[in-house]
Amino acid sequence: MAPPPAAVTPGSVPPGMQYLYGSGEGAAISIQAWRGLVGYAAARAKARPTDSVVLASGATLDAPRFVPCGAKPLAAVFDVDETVLLNLGFEADDAAHPGRSYDQARWQAWERTGVAQVSPVPGAREALATLRAMGVTPVFNTNRSVGTVEQTAASLNGAGLGPARHGETLFVAGDDPTGSRKDLRRATIAARYCVIAMGGDQLGDFSDLFNAGQPVRARRDAVAAPALALLWGAGWFVLPNPVYGSALKGGLDDVFPADKRWNSPGAAQ
């Protein structure tokens, strides 16, 4: 028999978790993103695009090129964790044990046993149902392990987000030789489908090129450069995640440019 869930001390939940898992604001921005995605997908499905929104092999962030669509059926590709599923059980365990560092073995145990302790991201279930009704197939591309793919599919299906079928509408780490390179799986998906929209909570959910080790400021500047700026909200849709991931890095000098600093008058320096 499983032990009872750990009690979470009131007031001990980190601010990022409060926002993402508990706030009305977090739910509203997720619903807003999903509504925007569905509206965009409806327009693109009607227009039948010539190119997908998946970067082609050899493309760069400065000079993006996209996989052509041809006559392939339409699809939209999504990350899983904190994009379509909220990992409430895992994060509650984290909140109950402040100061504990991330442990891959504990995450893998979560993948195996936390099938039901999840919730759909606000707006996701309705959006995926609408996409399917308009003839757009939702496909999931996640870095969850191939060893727990059955449990991942069960979580998605149990949350009303499926059908998720491995190798058809669900692709995981281990489905490609590198294990965690989403671009290779995106290429596999784009070879089968005309991908008209993608959604994720990390930039790597759109291209592995974002994870090439750029400094914090250069990475931020890259997403706002003219070549990519037109994609946000028009093919590429970001969901909020202030809890973990590639966004949470950078010291004072990385985040706040020196020429934009301000000191309160009279404050100790």
Rank of each mutant, 00 (worst) to 15 (best):
A96M: 01
Y244S: 12
W236T: 07
N143D: 14
S180N: 11
F90D: 10
N141S: 12
D254L: 00
R48W: 14
P226S: 09
Y244K: 15
G245R: 03
A56E: 07
D253T: 04
E111T: 15
R44M: 14
T169Q: 08
G235A: 05
D253P: 00
V84W: 03
A45L: 08
A224Y: 04
W107S: 07
G26E: 07
E111F: 13
S119K: 13
I31C: 09
P68K: 06
V195H: 06
D79M: 06
P226I: 08
T188Y: 04
K182R: 08
E82R: 04
A105V: 14
L55M: 15
R112V: 04
A2R: 12
S180R: 12
N241T: 03
R100A: 11
D81E: 12
L239V: 01
A105S: 14
Q18A: 01
V195G: 05
T142W: 01
R100F: 01
R65H: 11
P10E: 01
P120F: 09
P68V: 07
G199Y: 07
A225Y: 12
D51E: 13
M134A: 07
P122R: 00
A133R: 09
P138H: 02
P49C: 12
D94Q: 15
G22V: 01
N211F: 09
T148N: 15
I196H: 09
G99N: 02
W262P: 01
T178A: 14
G123T: 03
D94G: 13
S52T: 15
L228M: 02
P10W: 01
A191F: 03
P265T: 05
N241Q: 06
A71H: 08
F206P: 04
A47Y: 11
V139Y: 04
F90K: 07
D253E: 06
F78I: 05
A212T: 08
L184V: 07
T169L: 06
P3S: 10
R100D: 06
C194F: 10
M134W: 03
A197H: 01
G11R: 08
A218H: 00
E150D: 13
A27F: 00
K260W: 15
G162N: 15
A45N: 13
A95G: 15
V8N: 03
F140G: 10
L209E: 12
L209R: 12
G114V: 15
